[in-house]
Design a protein around this nucleic acid. Structure first.
Lengths: 127, 127
DNA sequence: ATAATAAGTGAGCATATATTCAACTAACAA
DNA sequence: TTGTTAGTTGAATATATGCTCACTTATTAT
């Protein structure tokens, strides 16, 4: 009787595969961190903000104008991005200037765009 | 009077920056597709499933056992992953075997893990 | 000091979504 | 045929989250 029979509502079909995969799985903490990071990129507004900041340093008002959204919503999102440390800012008078603070974001965009373009190409071929 | 004054509840601080950034922004469709793709990776369960499938081809029951979750929840998630085309499957008798169907996922994991490890290193330094 | 403006923030609302539960289908075995 | 098991699916529930609104803070100008 294996432990796993108590965990899931089905029998183990391939015990060897299951066991070897479990051994290779990183710990819970990494998965939580990893998915939290991807979740940040999983929102249109944040994706746009990050893409925009990758082009230029900008104040909140600038970003709001580029995206055509309210200062408040942008500020809320920037606060999210600040908390997980992928943007940084400097104050200058009344304005707060934001910049990208993560080299990985750019890399992820590149791979992500490659994916999107690859998939839309497939879509065309499927027609 | 610029168009943008009607779009946002604030004045444009840096019209040149705003305009040049707007020019560089890809169209809405790309942002939607891009964030949809990242959103898929922004869930702990899906991240684990994809990581597991990157190690081995597995049936639903196997995956459920590896993650310690119900068949039903895994099946729901696999359906999501199928719909956007990042996993594929083959039927063999009663079992359905899933595999990764996207080379980009692996790349994204690598960059993502790099990010997470970089950030946790920073966390240690800040103490 | 007072007014104006950039930015931040908490509450509330609307929407999205992850899991559970129960019912169902498909394939195999006795 | 009947029972068993792998997998799927729809509905319901609980939770998360993005935006708006109203208010506050900080800074500058008059």
């Amino acid at each position: 009787m294996s432990k796993n029979e108590f965990v899931c509502d089905c029998n183990i079909i391939h015990k060897d595969v299951v066991d070897s995969t479990i051994k290779k799985m990183p710990d819970e903490f990494l998965f939580i961190k990893l998915s939290q990071f991807f979740k940040i990129l999983g929102d249109v507004t944040r994706t746009k903000i990050l893409f925009a900041l990758d082009q230029n340093e900008m104040c909140v008002c600038d970003i709001a104008n580029v995206l055509g959204m309210s200062k408040s919503s942008i500020s809320h999102q920037l606060s999210t991005l600040r908390k997980i440390g992928i943007v940084k800012y400097r104050k200058d008078g009344k304005e707060v200037y934001y910049t990208l603070d993560d080299s990985h974001v750019k890399q992820l965009f590149e791979v992500g765009i490659e994916h999107v373009e690859h998939k839309s190409k497939n879509l065309l071929l499927e027609d």
